[in-house]
Write a protein that binds this DNA or RNA. Structure first.
Lengths: 209, 209
DNA sequence: AGTCCTGGATAGTGTTGGTATCCAGCCAAG
DNA sequence: CTTGGCTGGATACCAACACTATCCAGGACT
């Protein structure tokens, strides 16, 4: 397959594919001559993955690079890859050394401990949650455990379902893709449905019609 | 209050505040002299809102501008403001005229109809969901109604809880803030908890320990 | 022989979200 | 009544990001 066919089948321009090769998101094709390379289905599949992570997951190119190099490293186990993905998802802002922030972060840590969840201490999602706690408090809407309960339940139920869906007895590349799909794409599914459900609830509450 | 105090209390630099005034996110202070303006608590509160929408919600400045001008317009009702916020959240990519995409969009519309949800036809979240459908299909993980069920339930439960929490008998500004908080900030809460729950599930599944 | 495509390199583009600087004018402290 | 710091307003500048455009010479197909 030439690069132009790869372009047609992936829906990305030749320039963009070259750019991804330069950035090491996509491996080079095998050189057939000094001015021609051969690409195969693995290149195509990789491009589709990149496109999904970029367009749906809105991940920066640098984050995708970290993910795909973990994907390509056979020594990296599934749970480790999970951690890599979580780091790629962000947030990418490092928390300030602020007393409010430290308190929020401790609240988050306490919550996770209380729930008995096994989550790495350095998981970025801890910071993400702490960040919202700080913002909510600043805006005069402090969050309580009661407020959180429905979210915890929803998150838990959905995650439970997701982990069951990741294929177990399949080639590594399939399992890995299935995991990335679960974390990055289904996160958007949940977000989209959440927004739709909110609009419905708002219509029922405010829009008599 | 001078601008420097506003800066200290909001945690934003003077330059950034000036920038927000230029971009019409924040109204000017009342001119006390040709080189001095007076700011009040409403300015501070507005800045805190802007900061939350930027840093937690990751909304672009232009989107925040649209939100705050809807907030400031007393003629705009709560449900209408909801729609404005949804549009501000995106996605900001307009869908291509592609048969796969149209099919996905029809699936989404059918789903919403089946659920009986009252959602505007032009709601951007429809496109967001359709976009994930297309990507999932392209990656060889087509989504089914069964896959969606837990997400629908989770989204519905959480939204139901949220709409109940929006204060009813309070000054408009408080109600409006409470609505924005529910949509933008609690979306991040749900996302963060989802990621944490996934990591826990992954640890239990893959990381014997 | 001519036309098209290619790999590889380098430079340029548009958007976003601020920063930095400069300039007078003012205001309060000494 | 001067002096030092802060101000509004204007303008310029900047870095990151994700491409996009151009150019080149060397194949390859027709």
């Amino acid at each position: 397959m030439q690069i132009s066919e790869l372009s047609d089948r992936s829906g990305l321009t030749v320039q963009t594919i070259k750019f991804y090769i330069r950035e090491e998101l996509l491996p080079k094709g095998s050189a057939a001559s000094s001015t021609r390379s051969e690409y195969d289905d693995r290149h195509l599949e990789r491009l589709r993955l990149i496109r999904a992570l970029r367009e749906v997951g809105d991940l920066p190119v640098a984050a995708i690079k970290r993910i795909v190099s973990a994907v390509d490293d056979d020594k990296i186990g599934m749970h480790e890859l999970f951690g890599t993905t979580q780091h790629a998802l962000g947030p990418h802002v490092l928390p300030p050394d602020d007393p409010h922030w430290r308190a929020a972060r401790q609240d988050v840590d306490a919550l996770i401990r209380e729930l008995g969840w096994r989550v790495a201490g350095g998981a970025p999602a801890r910071d993400l949650l702490a960040q919202t706690f700080v913002a909510l408090r600043r805006l005069g809407f402090p969050i309580t455990l009661t407020d959180l309960r429905p979210y915890v339940k929803a998150a838990h139920d959905v995650a439970e379902h997701e982990i069951g869906r990741v294929t177990g007895d399949a080639p590594r590349s399939r399992t890995v893709h299935s995991m990335l799909v679960s974390t990055v794409l289904y996160e958007q599914v949940l977000t989209a449905l959440h927004r739709l459900a909110q609009e419905d609830a708002s219509a029922r509450r405010y829009d008599a019609d």
